[in-house]
Nucleic acid binder design. Structure first.
Lengths: 150, 150
DNA sequence: GCTTTACCGTAAGACGTCTTACATTATGAT
DNA sequence: ATCATAATGTAAGACGTCTTACGGTAAAGC
């Protein structure tokens, strides 16, 4: 059997770091999806609800920017949320191209519970990481995100 | 038009950080895929090649652990790489359940160029980030990855 | 006013990954 | 030896996202 090598010596130090950058969100997504599964919601759906809660009347394109998804993907998410009676599309007066998005009562009811789930996941994620360290992490990731901007 | 809010005040500081943790790899993946597209390879395929290069004779299950993918997904990746003559499945003597994975000459030829592409992406990603900071980033992400271990 | 351009959402299809179920083969217990 | 259990890879199908192309609408140029 081939020896266990994590990671192989051929890969550079930077490779290892980049793999970590991808590994953490993958694990996080898995955990979070499990946590919210009882509501029948995915992480993206939950994020969408959060943004619509904060800014009622959002358009899908605006939401796409918030979620960093394509418009078509957001349309799909909203299809789901509308079908489950969490979200309502309303025509915007004066602009018949766009929908405005609003939460239904059913969504308002579950948001607090979802928040609790999120906090539980975060607590686990950041165990042993200090406030200063999370601040630095945020700053570094922010720089990197900007660096990758088109 | 709804005001631009990135991120909305409703979302906590931690939410923002978690969103960044997901945003960076997403942008990174997009950039990297564009860089390697000229070879007709995705990032995952390239990573698979790198691991097989380092440890010839890997099994698919071992590779799945390296890549943090499921076995079925790796099987699919190897199907592709084998179809493109980058990889060869060979029977393992003494265990007829498993395949061992080996690079074809075609793969060996392109690895250096792929490495150059990767370095170019990394240089952009880490612009303005010091060596100490990348070390800290690695340590923090490592902790977080461990925290999320099942 | 009319035309062109830009914007918004949808449709259709591709792709990558996951889950579940399964067939084959090894391993270990008795 | 036999049988139960575990390991390995595959098959089939679901899901989320992306890309491309398109129709409808608004805004801007002329």
């Amino acid at each position: 059997m081939a020896q266990d090598l994590h990671p192989p010596a051929y890969l550079t130090d930077t490779d290892e770091l980049v793999f970590l950058i991808e590994e953490v969100p993958r694990k996080l997504r898995r955990l979070f999806d499990a946590s919210t599964a009882r509501f029948g919601l995915t992480r993206t759906q939950w994020r969408a609800l959060a943004y619509i809660f904060r800014t009622p009347g959002l358009t899908q394109t605006e939401l796409a920017k918030c979620l960093e998804l394509e418009r078509a993907s957001v349309g799909h998410v909203i299809d789901q949320l509308e079908g489950a009676d969490y979200v309502e599309r309303r025509a915007m007066e004066g602009n018949r191209r766009v929908w405005t998005l609003h939460l239904q009562p059913k969504a308002m009811q579950i948001l607090p519970a979802l928040r609790e789930e999120a906090e539980a996941v975060y607590q686990r994620l950041f165990a042993g990481v200090s406030k200063d360290e999370t601040a630095m992490l945020k700053r570094l990731l922010g720089t990197m995100s900007t660096n990758l901007e088109p």
